[in-house]
Design a protein around this nucleic acid. Structure first.
Length: 499
DNA sequence: TAACTTATTAAAAAC
DNA sequence: GTTTTTCCATAAGTTA
């Protein structure tokens, strides 16, 4: 896609935005001064934190789940559902008593998050400082990564080159490979921030080497950005949006087009954040909760998501339509992942107590039969292929982390691990690092457990006095070996780096 | 098989 | 510093 030429209107608009930013910057001097006097009073280092503008604060502090009639959702009455919606996310869950008497009037911002249409980034924005710096940073990275997109035709040639995975990774936007020294991973004060309020369900690094930007989704439907290396004069580099009205279940970034990022929500909507158009577009609006989201690494036009009780759908970016849904599980699908070396091979984990491996060429044809079904005693919270594809790691509520290897993943090792996170902490999901050596998983004692595939046990635990809460969700930076983001139920993000 | 009930737990806010 | 509130998720067990 060639960069679009700006119309006169767009050019004027950008100029106007820039002017407004200058005015804002001038105004900010006052708040900077007051901050300065405050910091002399309190010499202790304040961690970076999101700051919601006062006039927006009251609107979203209390998350409200609204009743949605078919009419307000713009859906024609349907005899099959007219007798009362019994779907996963509607009246049954929405009508839970609301204690706050002030929350009865629908706030404009919450209403917007429900809209069956695009929401401008401006309308969804909650933080007080301008988000121009963030938008510029993302567009800047996007332009740079697009330059390397022209190398994509090399993809096929490189695919056969087993010996040079690093070259392959860089050219096709795949995760970079490398080994790490576990003892070298450290958490520094400036790599800590409270990015959003409340419980984080998802953390993701933008897939770029040009900036370190972490994105998180929380249970209120907020999407928070943290530009980790933002200059001090740009504030903390933390930006908060509210594009969804309910918990965010997935974030999917396109390494070839950083300005496009998908987010999915428990209310059944999937939005595409388009930084170029400054919109959260609505790409899918279903009647069932969307619990998981994933992109096939080699096909950015296909978006896979799990909805309702075990259904899987594929949304096609070219047609803007989704496939019919395939019933792959009995209960909700918690994760969807693809084998990096053969993206026809997909794995799903489910609350029905199983993790399955599928051949996409055979899914949906005459029903769906899994290549392999892994059975845990309880709900399976995640299933991920290792970077080489030779391992599969599952994490289950039965207090086990499963490691599977061999041609058909027939070799099983169960590693005991306390996964009882309870009500307040998001369930643990063991993720892979940058090679097949380690799986990273949260620890109820405020640490990150590292499970070694060779040792078949927890060989180390990352701990730090800076970590004031339990890390439950993680992301390994796709292009920076050893850079690990961990997120908590209090909205914090901790970034571990090799020292 | 669906519908209802209950146990689980940490962190922030309030005192 | 200690106590209270948050809270309204989730999964598993029990009942009808």
């Amino acid at each position: 896609m060639a960069p679009q030429k700006l119309t006169e209107y767009e050019r004027l608009r950008l100029e106007n935005i820039k002017r407004n930013d200058q005015i804002l910057a001038a105004l900010k001097i006052h708040s900077k001064l007051s901050q300065l006097s405050e910091s002399t009073k309190r010499p202790r280092t304040q961690t970076k934190s999101y700051k919601v503008s006062p006039e927006k604060k009251h609107r979203t502090e209390t998350p409200i789940v609204l009743r949605r009639s078919l009419r307000t959702r713009g859906v024609a009455p349907d005899s099959s559902t007219a007798g009362g919606l019994k779907d996963d996310f509607d009246e049954t869950q929405s009508s839970i008593s609301r204690k706050n008497p002030n929350s009865d009037s629908e706030s404009p911002l919450t209403k917007r998050a429900y809209e069956r249409g695009p929401i401008s980034m401006r309308d969804a924005y909650r933080t007080d400082a301008s988000d121009r710096k963030l938008i510029e940073a993302i567009l800047d990275c996007s332009r740079k990564s697009r330059l390397s997109e022209s190398n994509n035709e090399l993809d096929d040639t490189i695919k056969g080159m087993e010996g040079n995975e690093l070259l392959g990774s860089l050219k096709v936007g795949r995760k970079v490979w490398g080994s790490i020294d576990v003892d070298a991973l450290k958490l520094e004060q400036n790599n800590i921030a409270r990015v959003v309020p409340g419980r984080i369900l998802n953390v993701r690094f933008l897939p770029t080497t040009d900036a370190r930007i972490a994105v998180v989704g929380n249970k209120f439907g907020d999407v928070g950005f943290w530009n980790v290396d933002a200059d001090a004069e740009d504030g903390d580099g933390i930006y908060l949006y509210h594009p969804h009205p309910a918990p965010i279940s997935g974030i999917a970034c396109n390494p070839f087009s950083l300005s496009k990022m998908f987010t999915s929500c428990y209310n059944g909507f999937i939005r595409l954040m388009d930084t170029e158009r400054e919109l959260f577009e609505l790409v899918y609006a279903g009647d069932h909760a969307v619990f998981s989201l994933s992109q096939s690494p080699n096909d950015m036009n296909s978006l896979y998501f799990g909805e309702g009780n075990g259904q899987l759908r594929v949304w096609d970016a070219r047609t803007g339509k989704s496939s019919s849904s395939w019933g792959l599980h009995q209960k909700r699908i918690n994760t969807i992942d693809f084998k990096p070396q053969n993206t026809n091979i997909m794995t799903t984990s489910s609350t029905d107590g199983t993790a399955c491996i599928w051949d996409l060429r055979k899914v949906g044809v005459n029903g769906s039969t899994a290549l392999k079904t892994i059975r845990h005693e309880r709900a399976v919270h995640s299933a991920y292929f290792s970077p080489s594809g030779r391992f599969l790691a599952t994490t289950s509520a039965d207090d086990m982390v499963g490691l599977f290897s061999g041609d058909t993943y027939q070799n099983m090792t169960m590693v005991y691990h306390n996964n009882q996170t309870g009500r307040w902490i998001s369930s643990f999901r063991g993720i892979w690092g940058w090679d097949d050596s380690y799986v990273f998983v949260g620890n109820m004692r405020r640490g990150v457990d590292i499970i070694s595939t060779t040792g078949k046990d927890v060989t180390a635990t990352l701990q730090s006095e800076h970590m004031s809460a339990i890390p439950c969700r993680f992301d390994a930076h796709p292009f920076e070996v050893g850079t690990l983001a961990s997120a908590t139920s209090g909205g914090q993000v901790y970034i571990w780096r090799p020292s």
